[in-house]
């Protein structure tokens, strides 16, 4: 991809054997929710806590070049 794409950094703290790539390129204008759907997240994105640049974010937000997504287990107690 070239000019019409954005680079997204991924910090994967799911603790599973399968690891996400540290960075992915997506077409410009991709929303957070659409991006998450492309990832091989067992169960789907709702089974994880997702942070965009360190903060909770709505799925409809459009990703920007250099954005950082953190994938964490749900903070569900125990």
């Amino acid at each position: 991809m070239s000019g019409h794409s954005v680079r997204i950094k991924i910090r994967d703290w799911r603790g599973t054997e399968e690891r996400m790539p540290p960075e992915m390129e997506m077409p410009s204008g991709t929303g957070l929710g659409d991006f998450l759907e492309t990832l091989p997240l067992a169960g789907g994105p709702g089974y994880y806590t997702i942070l965009l640049n360190g903060r909770p974010a709505e799925r409809k937000i459009t990703l920007q070049d250099g954005d950082e997504i953190t994938i964490l287990p749900l903070s569900v107690g125990g």
Binding site: R14, G15, A42, P56, T70, L72, S75, G78
Partner: peptide, 18 residues
């Protein structure tokens, strides 16, 4: 899977990150 692999400990990083 998460509980079997890591028990309850992943919460440390999850909370720290947030």
């Amino acid at each position: 899977e998460l509980l079997r692999r890591h028990g309850t400990l992943p919460l440390v990083r999850a909370f720290q990150e947030m």
